[in-house]
Amino acid sequence: MRTGALMKRIVRQFMRDKRTLALLIAAPLLVLTLMYLVFNGDTYKPKLGLIGMPEPVVQQLEAYGAAVSVFEHADDADAALKDGRLDAYVTLQSGGTIVKLEGSDPAKNRAITMLIGRMAQKAAPSAANASLPAPEFQYLHGSSEMTTFDSLGPVLIGVFAFFFVFLIAGVSFLKERTSGTLERLLATPLRRWEIVAGYILGFGLFTGIQAVLIATYSIHVLGLMMTGSLWLVLLITLLLSVTALSLGTFLSAFANTEFQMIQFIPVVIVPQIFFSGLFNMESMSPWLRWLSHLMPLKYGADALRSVMIRGEGWNSVAFEIYLLIALSLFFMAANVLALRKYRKI
């Protein structure tokens, strides 16, 4: 009941502070729209699998800058494609060339289509054997219409849900301390965990609204590619927000002013964005890549990508979902402990 009272108070305060409410809800939508307008593709060195190709074709493709590996059977190549070891494989079937693409990254799709296109053009004038018959493109995920925004969109949803919630929750909790109201709360029978739980529930309501708005706006208004379950997307976005909420309120214990809270952005938020999948991590050294496993945002972004682009279901994102729940609980517990600084019981 006391937690309920706290939750009600937070909701009321939020309704008065329209500007913060607008930041939480409108800012992510605005930034996503900008990203949608700005993003254009770039080039990439594709990983290509070849089945039963003549040697000159293999050499020519390598000369064009592809990382080529040769397979005996289409099944092996398919498996490699699913694991992400290949971006595409090429095979000859009844006189035609079949190009099967993994398809979830449009930049890679474009690079491969261009590469194969050049091979096919060569066929006409010289009729050399380093050429291919007119190719047919198939996609494991995505399609030829997929844009960079489709591919980055799920990550961006995660990033903005995380960033704005982290900041607003952190500053609000901090304000409780600087205004002296925390001391007053601690002069009541309110338990420390009840304070943390009240904050999660009160803010959780607004982050829930934010999650619904961001996801539906991106999918229905901006036309972001969506092949999986909307409910899963909402669940993952919400969990990511709750993680940001618990992390933000916890870290605010280590800031004395709002400005110090802002200083957590380059330390806590920006590295997570780098590792979230917005940038290709395959060129990164392995030990650095390992860091990404420490970042909550990466798990949320990976799960969103799986659901939205690859259309995968509960089983393939269950690990990420449980991990986000575990991280939230961990940060909440840490916050309950951090509050010991102000009252032992």
């Binding site: 009272a5 009321r12 305060q13 205004s179």
Partner: peptide, 18 residues
């Protein structure tokens, strides 16, 4: 140590409920 965004009544309601 009051919540400036809330009315006096809401402040009292909150602390009373605690």
């Amino acid at each position: 140590a009051l919540y400036a965004e809330l009315s006096a009544k809401e402040n009292l309601e909150f602390f009373g409920a605690l």
